[in-house]
């Protein structure tokens, strides 16, 4: 079956050069930020792929690439087998994809009533004619996300963060999409509200057969929602594996470091050795494998040659040490 979404070596570079005059004065060339630099994955219909990584790893850029907010610098994005640009040009195809954002305070237009916010995709795609019928649908959607149809008459500022995220979800569902891109949908929420939203998203997926691309920095959250997980570091995937495999046998040294770094709620008292150093700038990434300056297993080859994604068990890993069998746990 055709995957819902497929990316083939997709990259997105940003020109972050300073203005021409300053560049001439400082005698420096153009500077390119390689936010995403060659990422390939596929999401089968009805499943959830999560991308995890630290800030600046390019996961949010991937989210914006696959809904067409940025055109790719290189590579291809296929939506249900069709090139994304072509799919975006077709109103019917476009209505099949929607996005949920991180900040519940910025993702709703503060000057619009909630009912109009939710009805906007319905109107834009011409799905339902007539205000009465549209409002009826809005009421249904509000009920579906656990709010009251009467809430439609209010403005966003009258709601809490969790309720706003529900409104965001209702807006995304209003065009009957099949594919939802969720960019850190719970990271701005309190933990008890996060549980509500994650449960709601799982329910909706089961009921409506949705496909999710889920972006998060929180591994514990990702474990609860994903079928497959991709770990990103400096614009590239370093490991892509079925969710359970990733947690039981993490292979890439960065994946391991990331799991090691999470504070231990179980208080087993295990001594953690936090990974040293910091994420380098994506404007001047290290040579070879971008993780080598922080990697305990790095050798000369890692400094010189960028690793490719190779199969390792059920996973795919981009690491020379794993390939050579140096990474035995």
């Amino acid at each position: 079956m055709t995957p819902m979404l497929e990316t083939q070596d997709v990259a997105r570079h940003f020109d972050v050069s300073r203005p021409l005059i300053q560049r001439l004065l400082a005698r420096e060339g153009r500077r390119t930020l390689r936010a995403v630099d060659g990422v390939s994955f596929a999401i089968p219909k009805g499943s959830t792929l999560s991308l995890v990584g630290e800030s600046g790893c390019g996961k949010s850029t991937v989210a914006r690439l696959v809904v067409g907010l940025y055109p790719p610098t290189r590579g291809r994005v296929l939506f249900d087998g069709q090139d994304l640009a072509a799919a975006r040009a077709d109103r019917r195809q476009r209505s099949r994809m929607q996005m949920i954002f991180q900040d519940p305070y910025a993702s709703l237009n503060p000057r619009w009533r909630v009912a109009d916010i939710i009805a906007e995709p319905i109107r834009a795609f011409g799905l339902i004619e007539g205000r009465a019928a549209q409002m009826e649908r809005v009421g249904e959607l509000l009920t579906q996300v656990g709010l009251s149809p009467l809430d439609g008459q209010k403005y966003p500022h009258e709601f809490s963060g969790g309720q706003r995220q529900r409104i965001s979800i209702a807006r995304a569902l209003s065009s009957n999409p099949e594919f939802l891109v969720c960019d850190e949908p719970t990271s701005a929420l309190d933990v008890s509200v996060q549980a509500q939203i994650l449960n709601l998203m799982k329910e909706l997926q089961a009921r409506l057969g949705l496909t999710y691309l889920f972006i998060s920095h929180n591994l514990a959250v990702v474990r609860q929602v994903s079928d497959r997980i991709g770990v990103m570091y400096l614009g590239r995937l370093v490991e892509l594996a079925p969710a359970e495999t990733l947690f039981t046998t993490p292979r890439h040294p960065y994946t391991r470091a990331l799991m090691e770094a999470i504070p231990d709620l179980e208080m087993t008292g295990r001594a953690r050795t936090p990974v040293g150093g910091e994420v380098p700038s994506p404007i001047s990434p290290p040579s070879g494998c971008a993780f080598h300056p922080r990697c305990p297993l790095a050798n000369a080859r890692c400094k010189a040659e960028a690793p490719r994604m190779l199969p390792a068990g059920e996973a795919q890993v981009a690491c020379h040490a794993v390939e050579e069998g140096r990474a035995a746990a």
Partner: peptide, 24 residues
């Protein structure tokens, strides 16, 4: 109790997270 239970566990997958209804 509710707060602790609603934290997603890292070491296993649960079908449904425990949630506290409503908001503060």
């Amino acid at each position: 109790q509710g707060l602790m239970a609603s934290i997603p566990p890292l070491d296993r997958r649960v079908e449904r997270l425990q949630q506290i209804e409503g908001a503060m």
